[in-house]
């Protein structure tokens, strides 16, 4: 059948002008239309993501010799990160490496990001819930209000926290003026907590939207059905609302966790020496230390760690869901 109907059609198509043939092809092939739609994005992604990434991977196998780059391929940079040695301990965990600072900073960055992500998701969820279920008339207004912090630059927001938490900052002078304390509190700024607070504030708005969308998508009759079948509000939340909004929670968590691990602006501004993160060290390699190959190796090291954690997280969540389905 195919050859009978296909033969003359093809012949006919050849006799038409090129523009018509292209249009016919376009209309017939959904894949082609999809690729055309994707082209600008793909171009940008290729030029600004794939090319630099490949460059960085290449660089990570080179070596820095004073002011010159030695282009012989070597694993020396990676070896310097994980070369066994006397080591050090961090949070009671031994890091038996010759230069333990890299691995320690990586673990510390991951932990700080994890804490920030958890705080952000826990704060974003109630807000998203409120907008999705309680704000009946002014949803749009609420959504706009949530984006208000994003109207100022990221750097300014970080500085704002410096102003709030600093030695002569808003918090200290406020507390002194109402007589709660006599001397400014020194522990507010330049520590991991300050970094986490700043990261939370900076990324909260991004976390609310995915959760809001997933909550908004929940069919309200499902909630009524759960109530009808005997669930009180809390139980219903745990059995229906939360599982159905989980995709939003996951995407929020990833959207916050991944970029915050490598952040170096916030730790550099409010972290001090104790709040330093892996991003700071990497940035230093490309700047003051002028060791691009090591910086590249550290970046890739960090990316691999983040990828591993994200995969582990997704696998865990997916596994949980499969288990729930099977029960």
């Amino acid at each position: 059948m195919a050859s009978v109907t296909g033969g003359p059609l093809v012949g006919h198509a050849r006799s038409r002008p090129l523009s018509q043939r292209f249009r016919a092809l376009l209309l017939r092939s959904e894949a082609l239309r999809g690729y055309i739609l994707l082209t600008p994005t793909l171009l940008v992604m290729f030029l600004l993501l794939v090319v630099p990434l490949c460059g960085m991977i290449a660089f990570s196998f080179f070596t820095q010799v004073y002011f010159d780059i030695d282009f012989t391929l070597t694993l020396k940079n990676y070896w310097s990160i994980i070369k066994p040695g006397a080591g050090n301990t961090y949070l009671g965990i031994p890091f038996p490496f010759e230069t333990p600072v890299y691995t320690i900073l990586l673990v510390k960055s991951l932990l700080m990001s994890l804490v920030a992500t958890s705080v952000i998701v826990l704060m974003a969820y109630p807000m998203a819930y409120f907008i999705a279920f309680r704000a009946t008339n002014h949803k749009f207004l609420w959504l706009v209000l949530i984006t208000v912090p994003l109207w100022t630059s990221y750097l300014l927001r970080v500085f704002a926290w410096k102003v709030i938490l600093g030695h002569n900052g808003v918090l200290n002078s406020g507390l002194i003026s109402i007589g709660v304390i006599e001397e400014p509190l020194g522990f507010l700024l330049y520590n991991p907590a300050a970094v986490i607070i700043t990261l939370t504030h900076a990324w909260l708005a991004f976390a609310i939207l995915p959760i809001y969308v997933s909550l908004e998508k929940i069919d309200r009759s499902l909630l009524e059905a759960a109530t009808d079948l005997g669930d009180s509000k809390l139980i219903r939340f745990l059995r229906v609302t939360l599982p159905l909004s989980l995709p939003g929670v996951i995407s929020s968590a990833l959207m916050v966790f991944i970029p915050t691990v490598g952040d170096y602006v916030t730790p550099a501004q409010v972290g001090g020496t104790s709040g330093i993160m892996i991003g700071t060290i990497i940035q230093r390699q490309f700047g003051a230390a002028n060791n691009w190959p090591l910086g590249s190796a550290l970046s890739i090291f960090m990316m691999l760690a983040v990828t591993a954690i994200v995969c582990l997280f997704l696998w865990g969540v997916g596994n949980d869901r499969i288990k729930a389905r099977g029960a």
């Binding site: 499902l222 109530t227 009808d228 079948l229 009180s232 229906v240 599982p243 159905l244 729930a324």
Partner: peptide
């Protein structure tokens, strides 16, 4: 008396089948 304490059950127009659960669940 709230709905979850009433001796009634409802079949919804949209059926309201929980999408994250299996038929048995």
């Amino acid at each position: 008396v709230p709905p979850y304490k009433r001796p009634t059950n409802t079949v919804f127009q949209s059926y309201a089948i929980f999408p994250h659960l299996s038929v048995a669940e």
